[in-house]
Design a protein around this nucleic acid. Structure first.
Lengths: 107, 107
DNA sequence: GCCTACATATAGACAGCCTACATATAGACT
DNA sequence: AGTCTATATGTAGGCTGTCTATATGTAGGC
């Protein structure tokens, strides 16, 4: 998976994977890998800053938790995040339609 | 259309629009707009450098022509460009499948 | 003369994804 | 006890390809 291709779609992926249940960063990376059948293997250096960015934007809310000695920061969708996700889904459909119409023109 | 979303897909768009016939930059921009039903309106500051980049990479061949006093640089796909287009199409399918499987689960 | 469409091009800003590194705990195996 | 792997978070700095803004010039309509 080319790195640049992911650009601008990371937010949608993160919001989407958090739609059903709150997860911490490491679990999000695994969820993305599983849901995509191994196609998406997003590095930590991408995910953690992105989560912070989405939290700053008010789309996610993060909270520290402890599992034994391990510290985890668990993120959940805010109401604004849920709205943003709907927008991202809509944008994704427009995007694929537009690119698809150029790449696979109707003969 | 968000600017970042296009990242990494510009090459595929340009190669694809040049698949049937050689075109010059301005005509490429119009072709993208038409084929996408108006969704893609790519600025000149994106297209011209991108065409040069693809030419440098050997995927396109450019040639100056004149229509009256107007100068045009017409680009055509090279053999390498045609191969690259096939790869871009394949990558596009993988990409949409991967993202789609995360964004629209249960299906 | 002025405006719009046609046509190409560059400089510089910006954003966000990446690599590489840094830190730390838990459990399995040797 | 030491090592390895998996778990878990995070930052610094680099890269690269988009964009905005600007520059230049022709052609044709009003």
């Amino acid at each position: 998976m080319n790195a640049d291709a992911l650009r601008g779609h990371m937010d949608a992926l993160l919001l989407s994977v958090l739609e059903r249940e709150p997860l911490h960063g490491y679990a999000i990376i695994e969820a993305l890998r599983e849901r995509s059948g191994g196609a998406l293997d997003v590095p930590t250096g991408t995910v953690y800053p992105a989560l912070r960015r989405l939290e700053r934007a008010g789309l996610l809310a993060g909270e520290w938790a402890s599992d034994g000695g391990r510290k985890r920061r668990t993120y959940r969708l805010t109401d604004a995040g849920r709205e943003a996700l709907a927008g991202e889904r809509s944008a994704w459909r427009s995007f694929t339609t537009a690119i698809g119409s150029v790449l696979d023109p109707l003969r």
